[in-house]
Write a protein that binds this DNA or RNA. Sequence first.
DNA 1: CTCCCCTATATTGTCGACAATATCACCAAT
DNA 2: ATTGGTGATATTGTCGACAATATAGGGGAG
Lengths: 230, 230
Amino acid sequence: MVPLILLTDQPVTTADKTFIQLRQDIVEGVIRPSSKLSETELSTKYAVSRAVIREAINRLESCRLVERKANVGARVVALTQDGLEELYQVREALEGMAARLAAVHMTETEISDLKSLLSTHFETVQSGETYYQEAGDLDFHYRIILGSKNTQLISMLVDSLYHLIRMYRVQLGMAGPRVTTAFDEHRHIVQAISNRDAELAEMLMRRHILYTKQNSQKTLLSHINSQTRM
Amino acid sequence: MVPLILLTDQPVTTADKTFIQLRQDIVEGVIRPSSKLSETELSTKYAVSRAVIREAINRLESCRLVERKANVGARVVALTQDGLEELYQVREALEGMAARLAAVHMTETEISDLKSLLSTHFETVQSGETYYQEAGDLDFHYRIILGSKNTQLISMLVDSLYHLIRMYRVQLGMAGPRVTTAFDEHRHIVQAISNRDAELAEMLMRRHILYTKQNSQKTLLSHINSQTRM
DNA sequence: CTCCCCTATATTGTCGACAATATCACCAAT
DNA sequence: ATTGGTGATATTGTCGACAATATAGGGGAG
């Protein structure tokens, strides 16, 4: 797993590191969905004070990776059909807007970089390396999101939504056979951005996300059917 | 000021109350934009421990009302042209989607309630009560947001974006002369929702927000021009 | 046998103290 | 005079202890 993004390399506190560690453990399923997060337990396990754990849990809550009730405690979110639906609706809205803004604000250099990324992506699709396909897909979306140049939008997508999405993907084992078809959609989006056609870029991105959603929902359904433990 | 929304009346901790109090003081300008939030100072002022203040500040950060740097401290966000622009871009995306979903998910009862709200709103517009116009506008938007039935979307808009928007509105003294024209836009949106035309509802809502943005930006500009202290 | 109440226990919420870090002022050297 | 380094001070980060609340289990009454 590549260290995703690091805008500025500020000093990092223990709480920061604990938060990142906990987030990873939740997303990757080391800490199971719907499981309880005991503060004392975690503080011994990660060898930090409860205050640090509490701060980390608070941040996880604002990422919507855990839910919290006063005087009761925090639980990792459950993976549900409805949750996935809601998640993708928000993603469609935000990332559609990101594509629209990217068509306006991306520099020519950034666009040509995006195009070359697409080329390398094409090659790896043909050779069939599933892992790198995932990474390539992420990279593609990140560049467009960053290209929007809207810090709020970027933060919402990168800091919270995408971790939740990844949690669904990882835990439902979605290495999707959809990658080859997605490639064409990526190509068209880049074309629209390159043409500075904001309207079209947004529409194509929203379509692309809708297709991805349908694919994910199918996977989730079959998961529920095969394993009744949900 | 009406107590906005209270989904479930769970037990409320000191940190909750302090968070809400601080948020109000920031939004209403009791604590000025760009000012520093000293933890010790606030803990004496609000008569709670620093731990409580820290938790409140953390939550304010996830609302994007304050910004934080490790080992340095937290500051209230600054009100800038760019910030307003970014804010409204996100709002357009999210609330457009909310309108789309509301057209699908609102019950007939909720829709007729919305229509009657529109009627009372029309009367107050004619009588010219500016304060209630504001409240009425908020109420209108809230109902549609809630009508989306998407908890993520609702939380993003109600718990963070709208407080930021209100901060801009309150502090720039926007009691806008735009209310009468906005009324027609509201009417058309309701009509689209009533017709279950999701596509149109989204489009009209996005337009409506775009107009509001342009109006806000004008106000902000004249503010900057009149008072150089920014 | 069932239901309710009450107590014991464990967990979260809150607090004050200590450690680590940044900031500012002052001084010296070039 | 300006710049670089150094120390004092104030602020944030972290910790362990105490208080308040929820939960589970047992005992008693109906």
